[in-house]
Amino acid sequence: MIAPRRFLPSIPSLLALEAVDRLGSASAAAEELSLTQSAISRQLKSIEDQLGVALIQRNQMRLHLTPAAKDYVQVARTALNQIAQASLKLKANPTGGSLNLSILPAFGMHWLAPRLQDFARRHPEVTVNLSTCLKPFDFETEHFDAAIHFGQKNWPGVNYLPIMREDVVPVCAPDLLPDQEQDLSWLMTAPLLHLETRPDAWERWFAAQGRDASGMRGMLFDQFSTMVQATIHGLGAALLPSYLIEDELKTKRLVPAWNGPRISLGQFFLVWPQSRPESEPLRSFRIWLQGQVGPF
C-alpha cells in the first residue's frame, strides 16, 4: 500500500530540494533544472508547507539543508534515481523483461560477452544491460538486479551461483625471463605487477609455493586489460587468469615466469539479493548461466 498523499511531495519539489542540497544555491539549482530562481523558491516552500517542517537554512548567499533534511534528501535522491532507472528500463524494453547486471570488465569481455548471443537467441524477451563495477556494493541502494562476483562467499545478503574457478599463471615478456634456468628466487626479486582489487595475490601465490613473500611492492593497475599490455611490454611479471591470456601464450608474446602448478585464488559467482523476489528475467538468466557452466 502506498503512503497517504500528504506524505508524498511532488517530484518537481523533490528535484528542487535535491539540487539545492547538491549545488548549494537556488540559482545553481534553477540553471540545472531549467527553471527560474523564484520557481525553485516556490518548490522549496511547497514541500516545507506540505511536510510542516523547515528544511532550508539560509546563510548569506548559500542555502543549506537542516540536519534532518539532509537525511531526508538522501532517501529522496535514491528514490529519484530508482524511478529514473525504471523509466530507462521501460523505454529500452517496453514489452518488459530487462536485467541490470554488474560485471567485472575482464570476465565480462572475455568470458560472458561471447556467450550472450546464445542467451539473446533463447530469451529474446529479456534485455540485458551490462555495467562495470569492480567492488561489491549495496543492492539496496544500487539499481542492479544481479552481479558477477570474484573471490569467496563473502558478500553478505546475497544468493550465490558458482560459475567457474579462476586459475592464475605467473607470466612475463620473453625478454624478462632469465637466460639461465633459475629457481623461484629470481621471480621474488623481479618487478611484479599488482591488481588493485587483489593486492595480496602475489603473496598468496608465493605462499602456495611454500615461500614467504609478505609486503611485496610494484606497479598497481585497476584492470587486467592494462596490466596485460604492461606485461607484454616488459614492465614486470604478472599473475594473470589463464582464460585471459590463451592467445598471448600461444603467440609467445607472454611466457610462463615459473612452470609450477597452476593455483586458484578465487571463484566467479553470480550473486543476487536475498531481500528481493527473483524476477523472471533473472531466473531465465540464472538457469541459462547454469547450463553454460554445468555442475560445479
Rank of each mutant, 00 (worst) to 15 (best):
R42Q: 12
P124F: 05
R62A: 11
K91N: 13
N81W: 04
T78V: 08
L134N: 12
P94W: 05
A146I: 05
A76M: 13
Y72G: 06
V128A: 02
E32Y: 00
L161V: 14
R62S: 11
N93V: 03
F150L: 00
D118I: 00
K91C: 07
S46C: 06
A106I: 03
C133Y: 13
D138S: 05
E140L: 10
I40R: 02
R42A: 10
K70Q: 15
D71F: 08
T127H: 14
K45V: 05
V73P: 01
I40E: 11
R115A: 15
A29P: 05
P156R: 08
D118G: 00
N129A: 07
D118M: 00
R77Q: 14
S131V: 12
L88M: 12
A26F: 01
Q60V: 06
F144L: 09
K135F: 12
V75G: 03
D71I: 14
R77E: 06
G96C: 00
R122W: 01
S25N: 13
L134V: 11
M61F: 06
A147W: 06
G108R: 00
N81C: 02
R42V: 07
L99T: 09
V73E: 07
E142S: 03
Q50C: 04
M109K: 14
S46T: 15
H64R: 09
A84L: 11
P67Q: 03
G52R: 06
H143S: 09
T95C: 02
D49A: 14
R121F: 03
Q85Y: 09
P67G: 00
L104R: 11
N129G: 01
E32I: 00
S25D: 15
L116Y: 13
P156H: 11
T127E: 15
A28C: 00
N81E: 14
W155L: 05
A86H: 10
Q60W: 08
Q57Y: 02
L116A: 12
H64A: 03
Q74V: 02
M109H: 08
N93G: 08
L51Q: 10
D145L: 00
P94F: 02
Q152I: 04
A29K: 05
H149Q: 01
Y72I: 08
L112M: 13
F144T: 09
W155Y: 10
P136S: 03
L51G: 13
A39K: 08
E125C: 03
H123W: 10
G97N: 01
M109V: 08
M109F: 10
Q37K: 11
N59H: 10
L104C: 03
P136E: 07
A92E: 12
E31T: 12
L116N: 09
F119P: 04
N81Y: 07
L101C: 15
K91A: 14
L90T: 15
R42D: 09
L33V: 08
Q43S: 07
P162C: 02
Q57D: 11
I83G: 01
M109D: 15
S38R: 14
T95G: 08
H123P: 04
G151K: 09
N93K: 13
L51M: 13
L65S: 07
Q117Y: 05
L101S: 11
M164S: 15
R122L: 09
R122K: 11
L63D: 13
M164Q: 15
G108W: 07
R22E: 10
G108S: 04
H143R: 06
A84W: 12
I148Y: 06
G108Y: 07
R121C: 01
A120R: 15
P67D: 13
E32V: 04
E125S: 07
S102Y: 01
P136F: 02
